[in-house]
Design a protein around this nucleic acid. Structure first.
Lengths: 122, 122
DNA sequence: GCAATACTCAAGTCCATGCTTAACTATTCC
DNA sequence: GGAATAGTTAAGCATGGACTTGAGTATTGC
């Protein structure tokens, strides 16, 4: 029933420091579940749960070959959140910063507004 | 002891849907605490706690005149998170999207890296 | 001055979520 | 085939954070 919106699930994934560290690690290249679990002082199962969360909201992707699952960053994963921020910054900030300025000079139209309406309901 | 980083506190503030709705409301103009509390089916005190969270991480600002506290968006509030995302997207995504492309064409240097190192430790 | 208004604070409840343990499945190596 | 490896799942505990209640403070209007 709780069909949380896309940015909601992305924010819930990112708010956990361990998951941000996993993303950080994966941004340096693909890794197996064991490799990801090793540096953290926590169990395999715990890391696996984080990976499932990250994959569920599209921030990473994984593929199992034989008994080994390899995880990697999903390139467009942060895009919805970046869009969400951009949509909220441009109207609110009349003293445009560098990012806002660049966007304002080129193309004003944000691409997805339907998410924004779906969101914020729950 | 838990000196959470800036983006950590911003993410923790944004992850709560009510607080995103409050931001949404404030992006349409300043409002008093009562005005903000009214549309939500929750107590004054609960909304106040959300406002304190939002103010603590620099997403809003408030000023009390007489017995009335007026809240407004803090314009640069989302900037640290926007920067964080940009820093993580540009190295990871070699198929640059529109936002990445624009940034890459103009100025490559991100402004703050010290936060990023402090962060991800806890 | 005193009642109403607008907010503030502290304590307590409740639930979501991170983490553990323990069992289980599938694959590889000898 | 059997042991070791790599991952998966489920159940339960524990903590943090959202929300409430109930009291308190400061300001305004009469």
């Amino acid at each position: 029933m709780l069909n949380y919106s896309e940015i909601d699930s992305i924010l819930r994934a990112l708010v956990e420091p361990t998951r941000r560290q996993i993303l950080e690690r994966l941004s340096r290249g693909p890794a197996t579940v064991s490799q990801l679990a090793e540096p953290f002082g926590m169990t395999f199962a715990a890391v696996l749960q984080h990976l499932q969360t990250l994959e569920a909201c599209g921030l990473i992707r994984s593929e199992k070959i034989g008994r080994v699952r390899t995880c990697r960053i999903e390139p467009g994963g942060l895009a919805p959140l970046a869009d969400w921020i951009t949509e909220r910054r441009i109207p609110a900030e009349r003293h445009l910063d560098r990012l806002g300025q660049i966007l304002a000079e080129t193309d004003q139209s944000p691409k997805k507004n339907q998410d924004q309406e779906k969101d914020e309901q729950q």
